[in-house]
Design a protein around this nucleic acid. Structure first.
Lengths: 150, 150
DNA sequence: AGTCCATAGATGCAATTGCATGTAATATGG
DNA sequence: CCATATTACATGCAATTGCATCTATGGACT
C-alpha cells in the first residue's frame, strides 16, 4: 500500500493552486472582454457551448459553478431576458428545465471566448514550458477525477 | 530560445486547473466549519493570520482576494463589528488603513483552520501521491511567480 | 509653495447573491 | 396504488456585492 502524502504537502499544494487561480482571475476580470458580460455569466455560456446535445439541465449546470441554485436560476432568467439563452422543461422529468444557447448567445460566447483564450495564452504561456503545462494538466485532471466519487 | 507552448496546451491546462478548483471549493463550502463564517470571510482572517507583523494594509489584503475594494472595505467593517478584526490608520500613509486580528479573530481562524485543513487533507490526499502533490505545488508556484511581473 | 495628478478608502445605490422556504413532479415503501 | 419522502426549480427577503463617485492624503512637476 502506497504512503499517504503528508498533511503539509497536500494543503500547501492546494494553497498554491488556489492562490494561483486567484492571481490569474484577478487579471482576467479586468480585461475588456468581460465588460460585455460578467465572468460568471460568460462561464454559463461557455458551459452551454461545451454540451454536445446543445441542451443542459439546470442542476447539471449548477454543479460546474460556484453559485447557489437560486442564484443560477435567476441568472438564467436574466440571460434569457437578454436573448442569450433559451429554456424548456425537460421531457423526461417535468420538474427539470433544460437550457441552450440562442444564436446570439453562441455568437457572443465565441466572440468573448476568442479574446479570452488569446489573453489567457499571453498571460500564461511565458511562465511554463509545453511539458510543464501538460504535467499540470495531468495532475489537475487526476485530482479532479478522484473527487467525483466522494 | 525555448519554444512557446501551444495555445491549446496552455488553455486546456488552465481549464483543468480552474475546474478542479471549482470542484474542490464546492465540496469545501458545504462543510460545517463554514457555517461559522462564510468562506470569503475566513479567507480574510487566514490572510491576516499569515502576516508576520500582524498588521496588513487594506489594499494589500485586497490583492489576495477576488472581491472588489468597496466590498472588502465593508466586509472588514462587518468583521470589526463582530470583534474579529481591528483597524487603525497607517502611520506612514494617512490615507491607508491597517488591519489585524483580535484575539477572538485569531482564535476563530485557528479553530476553523484546523477543521479546514483536516477536511482538505481527507479530500485530496487519496487522489495523488506525495511526489505528485510536490510537483503540483512547484508548477503552480512557478506559474504564479511569473505573473507578478505583468 | 502651488497646481495637478495619482492613490487609499469610504459611500450611495442598484444589482446580484444566498438562505429559507414554497410548489410541483417523481421516486419509494408499504 | 396510496402515503410519504425526495428532487428540481422558483420566490420572498435580507445580506452582500459591484459600479460610479466622493473625500482626503500623498506625490510630482514647476
Amino acid at each position: 500500500m502506497a504512503n499517504q502524502p503528508q498533511i503539509r504537502t497536500t494543503t500547501e499544494a492546494w494553497e498554491s493552486l488556489f492562490r494561483t487561480q486567484v492571481a490569474v482571475m484577478r487579471r482576467l476580470q479586468q480585461l475588456p472582454e468581460f465588460k460585455k458580460l460578467a465572468m460568471r455569466e460568460y462561464d454559463v455560456l461557455f458551459n452551454l457551448s461545451n454540451c454536445p446535445t446543445g441542451w443542459t439541465r439546470l442542476n447539471e449546470l449548477n454543479e460546474a459553478l460556484l453559485i447557489s441554485q437560486p442564484s443560477l436560476s435567476r441568472m438564467v432568467e436574466r440571460l434569457e431576458a437578454k436573448g442569450l439563452v433559451r429554456r424548456r422543461t425537460a421531457e423526461a422529468d417535468q420538474r427539470g428545465i433544460e437550457i441552450s444557447l440562442t444564436e446570439a448567445g453562441a455568437k457572443l460566447q465565441q466572440e468573448i471566448g476568442r479574446e479570452h483564450v488569446r489573453h489567457l495564452h499571453e498571460m500564461l504561456a511565458p511562465r511554463l514550458s509545453e511539458a510543464e503545462f501538460r504535467q499540470l494538466h495531468e495532475l489537475t485532471d487526476k485530482l479532479r477525477a478522484g473527487l467525483k466519487n466522494s
